[in-house]
C-alpha cells in the first residue's frame, strides 16, 4: 500500500521530503480564509472527521485491525470535553488533553479484550464495546442528556486570546492547527519502526510472531494511539460546535468513518483526510436531496469503489499518475538506494 519504503527515503533532506506537504498545509487554511470564509463550519467538520478517519487508518489501514466500534473513542472524547465545559472547565486545550487521556485510557483497558480474539470475534468485540458505551450514554440522561444531546457547553477563548466567534473562524483555525499537530505525530508513528511493525502485522501476523514480535502488545499500542487521536477529534468536534450529539457514539458514525477511509484510500496518511473531505462536502452539496437518494448513492458508491477502485481516491490518482507518467515510476525506483554503498555514503 505504501511502496515508497521509509528506509529508502531516509537520505532525502527534510525540506525536500516534506516541502510540498508543508506548502499544502499552509495553502489550504489560507485558501479557506480568503475565498471560502462562509464554509468555516464545513471545513471544521472536515478537519475533525479527517483526524478521526486518520486515527482509524492507523488500525485498519496500517495494523490491519478492523474495528466496527471506533466511534466509541470519538464520542468519549466529545463527551469528556463537553462535560468539562458544561461543568466550568471551559479551557479548550487542557480539555482536549484530558479528552485524549480519557479516550486513551478506555482504549488501553478495552485493548486487552480486542486483541485477545481474531476475525469475526474481533469485529464483534469492537462492535460490542461501541454499542455498550452508546447504550450507557443513552441511559445516563442525568449526565449526558441522553438522545437530546449534551447542551450548555461554555468554552473559553483559545489560549485566552481567541474567542470562538459566530463565523467559526477561531473554531476552524483551532481545529486545523490541532489536526496539523496530530498529523505530524501520526506521520512520525507511521515512519517509525513501530509503524513498520504495524504494516508487518497487517501483512502477516504469523511471520511477525516468528521474528520475535509480541504481536498482541504491538496491536494494543496501536489501538491506544488510535483511541487517543479519535478522542482528540471528538473533543474538537464538541468544543467547536459547543454541543455533543448522542450520534457521536453510534454505530452509524463508526460505519461512516470506515466509508470515509474507503473513499480516500486506507493505508495512506492522507486517505482519511481526503475521504472525510469528499464525504462531508458531498453530503453538504446533496443535503437537499431526498435521504433515500443519498443512502442509495452512498451504498452504490461503496459497492463501485470496492469493486473497481479499492484504493479510493488516492488509489485512483496513483494509478493515473503511473499510467500517464511511466517514467516517474522507474525514476523513483532508481532513486531508492540499491546497494549498501550508496546507503552508507550519503549522510
Amino acid at each position: 500500500m505504501t511502496p515508497s519504503c521509509p528506509p529508502s527515503t531516509a537520505e532525502a533532506g527534510w525540506l525536500r521530503r516534506r516541502g510540498g506537504e508543508i506548502a499544502l498545509w499552509l495553502a489550504v487554511p489560507l485558501a479557506v480564509a480568503l475565498f471560502l470564509p462562509e464554509y468555516y463550519l464545513l471545513a471544521t467538520h472536515v478537519a475533525a472527521l479527517g483526524l478521526f478517519a486518520l486515527s482509524l487508518d492507523l488500525l485498519v489501514g496500517y495494523a490491519g485491525l478492523l474495528s466496527l466500534g471506533h466511534a466509541m473513542f470519538f464520542g468519549i472524547g466529545a463527551y469528556t470535553a463537553g462535560l468539562l465545559a458544561v461543568h466550568g472547565w471551559g479551557e479548550p486545550i487542557s480539555g482536549l488533553l484530558i479528552a485524549a487521556l480519557v479516550a486513551g485510557l478506555v482504549g488501553f483497558i478495552t485493548s486487552f479484550a480486542v486483541v485477545r480474539v481474531q476475525h469475526l470475534a474481533q469485529l464483534m468485540v469492537t462492535l460490542g464495546f461501541g454499542l455498550l458505551v452508546f447504550e450507557a450514554a443513552n441511559r445516563a440522561r442525568w449526565l449526558t442528556g441522553g438522545d437530546d444531546g449534551l447542551q450548555g457547553m461554555v468554552v473559553s477563548p483559545v489560549l485566552g486570546l481567541f474567542e470562538f466567534d459566530l463565523f467559526g473562524q477561531t473554531a476552524f483555525f483551532y481545529t486545523f492547527v490541532v489536526l496539523a499537530l496530530c498529523f505530524i505525530v501520526a506521520t512520525r508513528v507511521i515512519d517509525s519502526p513501530f509503524g513498520l511493525t504495524l504494516e508487518g502485522l497487517r501483512e502477516n501476523p504469523k511471520r511477525m510472531a516468528a521474528i520475535g514480535t509480541p504481536t498482541a502488545a504491538r496491536l494494543r499500542q496501536a489501538y491506544v494511539f488510535a483511541a487517543v487521536f479519535a478522542g482528540i477529534a471528538g473533543a474538537l468536534m464538541a468544543q467547536t460546535s459547543q454541543f455533543v450529539a448522542l450520534e457521536t457514539l453510534s454505530f452509524g458514525l463508526s460505519a461512516e468513518v470506515l466509508i470515509m477511509l474507503l473513499l480516500g484510500g486506507a493505508g495512506h496518511r492522507y486517505g482519511g483526510l481526503v475521504g472525510a473531505a469528499v464525504f462531508v462536502i458531498a453530503r453538504d452539496l446533496l443535503s437537499d436531496l431526498n435521504p433515500q437518494y443519498w443512502q442509495f448513492g452512498v451504498g452504490g458508491v461503496m459497492v463501485l469503489v470496492v469493486l473497481f477502485a479499492p484504493g479510493g481516491v488516492l488509489g485512483i490518482l496513483r494509478s493515473l499518475r503511473q499510467r500517464l507518467l511511466p517514467v516517474a515510476r522507474t525514476s523513483t525506483a532508481k532513486a531508492a538506494p540499491a546497494t549498501p554503498a550508496t546507503k552508507g555514503g550519503a549522510a
Partner: peptide
C-alpha cells in the same frame, strides 16, 4: 529492529536508526 528492541519506538523515524 525487532532484535534490537526498537519495534515499540514511535518517536524516531526508521531512517534515523
Amino acid at each position: 529492529c525487532e532484535r534490537l528492541g526498537l519495534t515499540a519506538r514511535w518517536y524516531k523515524r526508521t531512517g534515523e536508526h
